[in-house]
Simulated scan of single mutants.
Amino acid sequence: MMQIEDSQILEKFADEHTRHEAFSLLLKKYQQKIYWHIRRLVIDHDDADDLTQDVFVKVWKYLANFRSDSQLYTWLYRIATNECLTFLNKKKQKNNVPLDEVSHDLADTLTEGSYFNGDKIQMKLQQALLTLPEKQRLVFNMKYYDDLKYEEISEITGTSVGALKASFHLAVKKIEAFLLSND
C-alpha cells in the first residue's frame, strides 16, 4: 500500500465530503505509532488504549484548526505526550504518592501484563526506563524507539535541543548503570 502524504490527508479533511476518509487514513498511518508512544510511557495496555482513543478524539476535534506550522506527526505526538503526562500526574495525585512509586507500580504491571511479550532484555530495559525521571524517559523513548530527531522532539516537548541531548545522555548513563547493577 502506498503511503499517503500528510498534506493529502489534511486536504481531504478540509473537505466535508472526504473528512471521514481523511480521518481513516490518518488513523491507519499514525494510530499504531501513537499507541506505542503512549504505551511506553504509561506501560499498561488498557490505559494506553484509552489514552490513544482520547488523543484521536482530540485530533478529530481540532484537526480543522491545524495550522501546518509544524509537521502533522509532531502535532500528534505533542497531543499524545501531553495526554500521557496529564494521566501520569493525575495518577500520582490520585494515589497521593511520589512519581517514583507510580513507576514502581508500573514496573509490577510489566511483569503481570499479558500484553507484554518481550524477552528478558526488553523487560530489563523497560524496568530501567521506569527508574528515570519523566522527562528523561520521554526523551529516551522518542529518540530510541521512535527514532525522532532532536529538533522534532524539541517541537513536541517545547524543550531546547541542548537540554534534550543532555537528558538523553543522562538517561543512557542511568540505564547502563541500572542494567549493570541488575545482572
Rank of each mutant, 00 (worst) to 15 (best):
K143C: 10
G113Q: 12
V172S: 01
L138M: 15
K173H: 08
L110P: 03
V172H: 02
K173R: 11
I153P: 01
A107R: 14
G113C: 15
L148K: 00
G158S: 03
F140I: 00
Y115S: 07
S167V: 02
D147G: 12
V161M: 10
L130D: 02
P133Q: 04
K143V: 12
F140K: 01
N117A: 13
E152H: 06
D147A: 13
L129A: 06
T109M: 14
E112K: 07
K173L: 09
V161Q: 07
M142V: 06
D147K: 15
E112T: 09
L106P: 03
R137D: 02
E152T: 02
Y144C: 08
L130S: 02
V172L: 08
G113M: 10
V102K: 07
K149Y: 09
E151T: 12
I175A: 01
G118Q: 10
E112D: 08
K135M: 13
A166F: 10
K135V: 15
V172W: 02
A163E: 03
L110I: 14
S103C: 10
A166Y: 02
H169V: 14
P133E: 13
I156Q: 01
S103Q: 12
V102A: 09
T109P: 11
E152V: 04
G113H: 06
D108F: 15
S103Y: 12
K165R: 14
D119H: 14
D108M: 15
D146P: 01
K135L: 14
S160M: 01
D108I: 08
R137Y: 00
V139H: 00
G158A: 03
D146Y: 05
K165C: 15
D146L: 07
F168R: 02
L125P: 05
L138H: 05
V161A: 11
T111Y: 10
